[in-house]
Amino acid sequence: MEVRTIKVFTTVDNINLHTQVVDMSMTYGQQFGPTYLDGADVTKIKPHNSHEGKTFYVLPNDDTLRVEAFEYYHTTDPSFLGRYMSALNHTKKWKYPQVNGLTSIKWADNNCYLATALLTLQQIELKFNPPALQDAYYRARAGEAANFCALILAYCNKTVGELGDVRETMSYLFQHANLDSCKRVLNVVCKTCGQQQTTLKGVEAVMYMGTLSYEQFKKGVQIPCTCGKQATKYLVQQESPFVMMSAPPAQYELKHGTFTCASEYTGNYQCGHYKHITSKETLYCIDGALLTKSSEYKGPITDVFYKENSYTTTIK
């Protein structure tokens, strides 16, 4: 009895394709271990004539594949690729409408935090270190965002349907971005203890939790000093293409032309909904596939993004 075979390709990165001759009487799992086709788990399936010449994702289970996976995804987590594939199996079914010149995501599976993050990423200057993220990001900007969303979920250790947080998501993504040249110098002034300067680099240099107003941050924000008295913390120097200011959701007025974009969060910790506000020729609110415009805006804002380049204080 002759062994019926077909020729397929296996890959971990969709760049390096490895030619395989597979036995049609055995499952993919018996031949390769966990195997995925377009995100779908085909591990328990036997090869079919229609699979001839198709590319299958496999887990990096030998040295060659491990090197290829690390170079593309910059992670050695053995569960990463499987999590990416199972997320992709959902995100490829989502709709990605162009809204006001940006790629958004039609609401499904509690994905409003991903839509808000995706919209924000198209408006701030950011370059990702893992080629996987950078490639998928370019495709997302062009309207094909399924891979990018699935990668975000995998890097953030999230599953489809789980509630997510924009600030946490951005923080994970910033860790995989090139923020080497970003720098922030802060000064804390206390009447009792004097003053202390701190220099922050990388992710810490672009994120701040405690106030939404970048102007206020430049002037000074009140913080408790270690001595128990009130101290003032203010920005001395900022070198970065953008800054992200966050605070627990509270009524906040966004003035046209003073910011790049913002995240609105309605609801409580267990259950809520994100919308995205962007400042173009007027203010726009993007909620999944829905767009509304207004000249002014007041609502429960939790993150505001500002364009920056270089700032030095005039406070002496």
Rank of each mutant, 00 (worst) to 15 (best):
A146R: 06
Q30N: 14
F128H: 04
L235Q: 00
L119Y: 01
N129S: 09
S25Y: 12
S295M: 11
N178S: 08
P241D: 09
E125N: 10
S181L: 10
V189Q: 09
R66P: 07
A136D: 03
R167S: 04
H276K: 00
A108C: 14
K255Y: 08
T312E: 13
V8E: 05
T169A: 06
S295P: 11
A40Q: 14
T159D: 15
A142I: 15
G82A: 12
F56Q: 03
D23S: 14
G53L: 13
I45D: 15
P130H: 04
G202N: 05
M209A: 15
R167M: 00
S79H: 10
I301D: 01
S213Q: 03
T91H: 04
V203D: 06
I301G: 00
T5R: 13
L291C: 12
L235S: 01
V243T: 01
K127E: 12
F148V: 04
S79F: 09
K201S: 14
C285K: 09
G161M: 06
K298A: 09
P34E: 15
L37N: 11
A115L: 04
P224I: 13
T260E: 10
L254K: 02
T91Y: 00
G82P: 13
Q195K: 14
I315S: 15
N178L: 05
V243M: 05
T27Y: 10
D62P: 06
K229M: 15
D38F: 10
A177H: 03
V22C: 10
C156T: 11
S246N: 01
T103K: 01
L65S: 11
T120K: 03
E204K: 12
R66K: 14
A108E: 10
G194A: 04
Q195Y: 11
I105D: 02
G220E: 06
V22R: 04
Q230R: 11
K229R: 12
S171R: 14
T27A: 11
T159N: 09
G267L: 06
P130F: 03
M207P: 04
Q98Y: 09
T302W: 00
C225H: 09
K92T: 10
Y306F: 05
T226D: 11
P300W: 11
Y269I: 13
G194Y: 03
T226M: 10
Q134Y: 05
N61C: 09
G288P: 02
T232H: 09
T11H: 05
K280P: 01
D303A: 01
V67C: 15
N110T: 02
T159A: 14
F305I: 14
V8L: 11
H74M: 14
E162K: 04
S181T: 11
K158G: 02
G288D: 00
Q134K: 13
W94M: 03
Y208W: 10
T75P: 05
T192N: 13
V221Q: 07
E204F: 06
K127R: 11
E308V: 13
A40G: 13
G164C: 04
K219N: 10
N268F: 10
L102V: 07
T64A: 12
A40L: 14
C225F: 00
Y155A: 04
C193N: 06
E144K: 12
L59Y: 14
L102A: 10
Y274L: 00
I15A: 07
C112N: 04
K298H: 08
P248K: 12
E308T: 13
K106Q: 13
A289R: 05
N49E: 13
L186A: 07
T292I: 10
Q230F: 15
E296P: 13
G161V: 05
G220R: 03
T282K: 12
E308L: 10
Y172F: 12
T91I: 05
K218H: 03
S279H: 05
T27G: 08
G82R: 15
A262Q: 00
G272A: 01
P224R: 14
G101C: 05
Y208G: 09
A40S: 13
K44F: 14
Q216W: 03
K293R: 10
D109S: 06
Y84M: 03
F80E: 05
R167N: 04
N129M: 08
K95Y: 05
R139N: 11
M244R: 05
H48A: 14
P47H: 02
W94S: 02
V166H: 06
I315D: 15
L254Q: 00
G82V: 14
Y172Q: 10
L114M: 09
H273K: 00
R184E: 04
G33W: 02
Q195H: 13
Q230M: 13
V12C: 07
I315H: 15
Q20T: 14
D303L: 05
E2F: 11
T27V: 13
T292N: 07
V185L: 06
P131F: 03
S294K: 09
I124R: 04
T199N: 07
T258C: 07
Y72M: 11
M207S: 07
P300V: 15
A247M: 06
L200V: 12
A40V: 13
Y306D: 01
L59I: 13
A108G: 05
Q123Y: 04
V206F: 02
M245R: 01
T192C: 10
H74E: 07
A262N: 05
S279A: 09
C261W: 01
K233M: 15
V160W: 04
T199D: 05
T64N: 14
Y36G: 05
W107P: 04
N178F: 05
G161I: 03
C156P: 06
D165P: 02
Q20H: 14
A262C: 02
M85Q: 09
K255D: 09
S25R: 13
M26R: 07
Q251N: 13
Q122R: 02
G29P: 04
A40Y: 14
Y137N: 04
Y265N: 04
S50N: 14
K183N: 07
K280E: 14
T55M: 09
Y265I: 00
I124D: 02
L65R: 07
M244N: 00
L163V: 12
Y72P: 05
I15H: 15
T211D: 07
Y274G: 00
E125S: 09
T5L: 12
S25M: 12
F70A: 14
S79P: 12
T312Y: 11
H18D: 08
Q251S: 12
T64F: 10
L153H: 04
P34D: 07
D165T: 02
G82D: 14
I45A: 13
A231E: 00
T27M: 13
M85P: 03
P131D: 02
T292L: 09
Y274N: 03
T266M: 11
Q134D: 08
Y252K: 05
Y172A: 09
A289F: 06
L163Q: 07
G33Y: 05
Y214H: 02
E125T: 08
Y73T: 04
P248H: 11
F242G: 04
P97A: 12
N61L: 13
A145Q: 02
Y138R: 14
M170L: 11
